Simulated assay, not measured.
Amino acid sequence: MNKKTFLNAPELHIGIAAFFLHFVWELIQTPLYECFRDTHYYTVVLLIIRATLGDVLISLAAFWSASVAVRSRFWILEEDKKGFWVFLGIGMLITVVFEELATGPLNLWGYTDAMPVLPLLGTGLAPVAQWIILPLLQFWFVRRQLLGGSISGHLIQ
């Protein structure tokens, strides 16, 4: 793989956008999780980075699932939004299942009283909102980056 091919790989842009967007989100939502109470700053930063890397993996898994569903790694550039809906759905499914396991049997973290939860699932609203809002931003950033910053949607040669 040459340098130009690597720099135009949608996975690279998905990963970069996911890291920066999810890092900020994870930082903002720390008051909603018990594990951050009375925790040293350095430990909080490490936990946020670990959570962010997990979010990047979820984004890549959702991206590759969408790529398989539409038979193209460049679905993000196509007019048909099937890939986006698969991306969003897979990311949401993984998130809800992992939150359920992490707050339940695995006991990795818990919610503070400030975390609103979904009535039927008991999943926190913040992680669910994260996988609705951030994929929309990610889609916009990655599409724009792959199009070379073009506003009109046409590749710049």
Rank of each mutant, 00 (worst) to 15 (best):
Pro127Gly: 07
Tyr33Val: 09
Ser59Phe: 12
Ala51Thr: 02
Asp113Ile: 05
Lys3Thr: 14
Trp109Gly: 06
Ala17Tyr: 14
His40Cys: 01
Trp131Gly: 00
His22Asn: 02
Leu88Gly: 05
Phe36Ser: 07
Gln138Ala: 03
Phe19Arg: 07
Met1Phe: 13
Pro10Cys: 02
Ala69Glu: 08
His22Lys: 06
Glu99Gly: 01
Gln145Arg: 15
Arg73Lys: 15
Leu147Glu: 08
Gly54Lys: 04
Leu136His: 02
Trp64Cys: 08
Thr95Asp: 13
Pro105Gln: 09
Tyr111Gln: 03
Phe87Thr: 04
Pro10Ser: 05
Leu12Glu: 15
Leu57Gly: 02
Phe63Pro: 08
Thr5Met: 13
Phe139Tyr: 15
Pro119Ser: 14
Trp85Phe: 12
Leu7Ile: 01
Leu53Lys: 08
Glu78Met: 11
Ala17Thr: 13
Trp140Glu: 05
Ala18Val: 03
Gly54Trp: 11
Lys82Arg: 13
Leu53Ile: 15
Arg50Met: 04
Ile151Pro: 01
Glu78His: 12
Trp85Gly: 13
Val45His: 05
Ala18Leu: 11
Thr30Val: 03
Ala114Gln: 12
Phe63Cys: 13
Gln145Leu: 06
Val96Met: 10
Val56Glu: 05
Thr123Ile: 05
Ala62Leu: 11
Pro119Cys: 02
Asn107Pro: 02
Arg71Asn: 06
Ile133Leu: 07
Gly153Lys: 02
Gly124Phe: 07
Arg71Pro: 00
Thr43Val: 08
Phe74Asn: 07
Leu155His: 14
Leu147Phe: 10
Tyr111Leu: 00
Asn8Ser: 12
Ala17Phe: 10
Leu32Cys: 06
Gly89Phe: 12
Gly148Thr: 06
Phe63Ala: 11
Thr39Trp: 04
Phe23Tyr: 13
Glu100Ile: 12
Leu47Lys: 05
Ile156Gly: 00
Leu60Ser: 14
Ile94Met: 09
Leu32Arg: 01
Ile49Trp: 06
Leu134Thr: 01
His40Arg: 13
Gly91Trp: 10
Gly54Gln: 08
Arg50Thr: 01
Pro127Ala: 09
Pro135Lys: 04
Met1Val: 15
Ser72Pro: 05
Val56Pro: 09
His40Trp: 07
Thr103Tyr: 04
Leu106Met: 00
Leu155Lys: 15
Phe19Glu: 13
Tyr33Lys: 02
Leu106Asn: 07
Leu137Glu: 00
Val70Trp: 01
Trp25Leu: 13
Glu11Met: 12
Ile28Gly: 14
Leu137Gln: 02
Gly91Thr: 14
Val45Trp: 03
Thr43Tyr: 09
Phe19Asn: 02
Val44Ser: 08
Trp140Gly: 10
Glu100Ala: 14
Val70Gly: 08
Leu146Phe: 13
Ser65Phe: 15
Val96Cys: 09
Gly91Asp: 12
Phe63Asp: 01
Ser72Gly: 04
Phe63Tyr: 15
Pro10Ile: 03
Pro31Trp: 06
Asn8Thr: 15
Ser72Asp: 14
Leu137Asp: 02
Arg144Thr: 14
Trp75Asp: 04
Val44Trp: 00
Phe87Arg: 01
Leu7Lys: 09
Leu7Gln: 04
Leu121Ser: 15
